[in-house]
Simulated assay, not measured.
Amino acid sequence: MPAKSKSQQKAAGAALAAKRGDIKESDLKGASRSMEKSMSEKELRDLASTKRKGKPEHARDGR
């Protein structure tokens, strides 16, 4: 499943780094913290690998 916005892609990348042990879980904030706890490494990798070009900075709620 591709990321819908640049911010979602960045949060997934941070969560993936924490899940792999590259950064501390305590350094995560907001969406990346909940993503790290609730998603598998494969799901995070899929979101984080989405290209940013053409994506809005933030996705609108309800769309």
Rank of each mutant, 00 (worst) to 15 (best):
R33N: 02
A14H: 09
G30R: 01
K42M: 10
K19V: 14
K19M: 09
A3Y: 02
K4I: 05
K10I: 09
K37C: 00
G21R: 08
L44F: 06
P56L: 14
K19C: 05
S38L: 12
L16H: 12
E43W: 08
L16G: 12
E25Q: 13
A12D: 08
K55D: 05
A59T: 05
G62H: 09
K37F: 05
E41W: 01
Q9L: 07
G30T: 02
A18D: 13
S32L: 04
K53E: 08
A59D: 10
S34C: 01
G54S: 06
S49P: 03
Q9G: 00
S40A: 04
S26I: 14
D46R: 09
K19Q: 15
K37N: 07
G30C: 04
K53W: 04
E36A: 15
G13W: 07
K29H: 07
G54W: 06
E41N: 06
A17P: 04
A48E: 14
K37L: 11
A14M: 15
A17S: 15
H58E: 09
I23D: 03
S32K: 03
M1I: 05
A48H: 13
K4C: 04
R45F: 14
A11Q: 06
S5D: 01
A59H: 09
A18F: 10
I23V: 15
E36F: 01
A17W: 06
E25N: 10
K55Q: 13
S38V: 07
E25F: 13
E57D: 09
G30W: 00
K19I: 07
S26M: 10
S5G: 01
K24Q: 11
A59R: 12
H58S: 09
A14S: 14
G54I: 07
K19A: 11
L47A: 11
A59G: 05
A12H: 06
K42P: 00
R52C: 01
K6S: 00
A14C: 11
K37G: 06
K51F: 03
K19P: 01
K37S: 10
Q9H: 05
H58P: 00
G54R: 09
M39D: 00
H58K: 11
A18Y: 11
R33S: 11
P2E: 15
E43C: 06
P2F: 07
S40G: 12
A11T: 01
R20G: 00
K4Q: 10
Q9I: 02
K6F: 00
K51W: 04
P56A: 14
M35F: 14
E41L: 09
R45W: 10
S32H: 02
S32T: 03
D22S: 05
G62A: 13
G62S: 13
K29G: 00
K29V: 09
K24R: 13
S32Y: 02
S7K: 08
E57H: 02
S32A: 15
S38E: 11
M35P: 00
E43A: 15
A31H: 04
I23E: 03
A15K: 11
A31F: 03
G62P: 11
G13C: 14
S32G: 03
